[in-house]
Simulated scan of single mutants.
Amino acid sequence: MQQVKAVVALAKGEPVTLQTINIPDPGPGEAVVKVQACGVCHTDVHYRDGGINDDFPFLLGHEAAGIVEAVGLGVTEIEPGDFVVLNWRAVCGNCRACGRGEPQYCFNTHNATQKMTLADGELAGTELTPALGIGAFAEKTLVAAGQCTKVDPRARPAAVGLLGCGVMAGLGAAINTGNVGRGKTVAVIGCGGVGMAAIAGSVLAGASKVIAVDIDDRKLERARTFGATHTVNSRQADPVAAIKEICGANGADGADVVIEAVGRPETYEQAFYARDLAGTVVLVGVPTPEMKVPDLPLIDVFGRGGSLKSSWYGDCLPSRDFPMLTDLYLQGRLDLDAFVSEEIGIGDVEAAFTKIHDGDVLRSVVIL
């Protein structure tokens, strides 16, 4: 058992605080990781605000890279000293998806069995709920060994740690879920961190046109730096008409792939109608439970054909995708550094949440 500093959300909607927490020694199948960097993701805000569940207190942070410090019994795939990116898809190897050779859809991903706890005050001993089973706004964290993916140690922790969630979600929405390939036309609705990664992934995959759609000109300007060939401010123009006009050569009636990275009914409808006949819609933006799409006629779903897909974690397999994307980063072919807007201290997370809300950053990254 050891004690470290960590960022904790004690109660719904309250500012996060820096707490001392207890980290158990790793048990069978577990690992303790010394965190070097962890990105500040909008999902952490959802946890703080009770938008995920009510299992307070939460140990926040999940887009992280670090060094394995210790492993428990039976752990053979990693060892102390390994440089790893943490993931929240530790596949089981036994479920139906794993059995049919599709572990990226594993039904039974797992986390550490032991619980980290608060160390001080009236709540001493209270079990913490780690965000996405990771909890990496901390000097060290306890995870399942399968949540540790070894990557090239030459990579910058602040950059490759972002593969742990949002950047992987966007890249994977394009490459894995949307099957974007050479010559395809792509529209991305919503240019936050996930949408920007979808743009980067589309460019990496060889898309001929990549159309960025947002209501914020600052984000649209940034999208061009990630490779967007066209931009549409949907406050000023109908995005469906604009996408169709841009893609209209050779008789196309929209984009081959439209990636919705907002998670709202109105933008999903825009994505649906902005795709070409037999095109693909990918929903990677996370909706809230009450959201519905009531105005989408079923005859249009039938008549336009194609695919309507959701992308959960970019349909990634960390053991396959993280090392490959890290190699592309080191080769200069994938600019993960561009996603790092600022580096901050562990005490600056609450201020970083405000910057996310205001659209001022792609990612603030906590350096430990």
Rank of each mutant, 00 (worst) to 15 (best):
D49H: 09
W88V: 04
A97M: 12
P103N: 08
C92A: 00
A124D: 08
M116I: 01
A97G: 09
T126K: 10
Y105G: 09
F58T: 00
F56D: 05
F58E: 07
G51M: 07
T113W: 02
G61L: 03
G74M: 07
W88T: 06
T117L: 02
H110N: 11
R100P: 05
T113F: 02
R96A: 15
A97Q: 13
D82E: 14
T129L: 00
Q104K: 11
E63S: 07
E79I: 12
I67S: 01
V85T: 13
G125N: 02
G72F: 14
G66P: 11
G81C: 12
A124Q: 09
G50F: 08
K115A: 08
A119G: 08
A70G: 00
T109Q: 06
G99M: 12
K115Q: 09
G125L: 01
F83P: 00
L86Q: 11
A90G: 11
A65G: 02
F83S: 03
T76C: 09
E102Q: 14
V68D: 10
N94E: 15
A124P: 01
D55Y: 09
G50W: 05
G93E: 06
D82R: 12
L60R: 00
E69C: 10
N87F: 06
H110F: 10
N87L: 07
L118W: 02
D49E: 11
G72M: 11
C106S: 00
I52C: 09
N53G: 04
E127P: 02
T109E: 03
I52E: 04
R48T: 03
N111D: 14
F83T: 02
G61C: 01
H62C: 13
I52A: 01
A65M: 06
R100K: 14
E102R: 15
W88L: 09
T109A: 04
V68L: 05
V91F: 07
G101I: 09
E102T: 15
E127R: 06
A70Q: 08
N87E: 04
D82L: 12
R89W: 06
L59P: 08
A70R: 12
W88P: 02
H62A: 12
M116N: 08
G66H: 02
V85N: 11
V84D: 08
C92Y: 05
C95D: 10
E79V: 15
H110W: 08
N111F: 12
G72H: 13
V85R: 10
G51L: 09
E79D: 14
T76D: 15
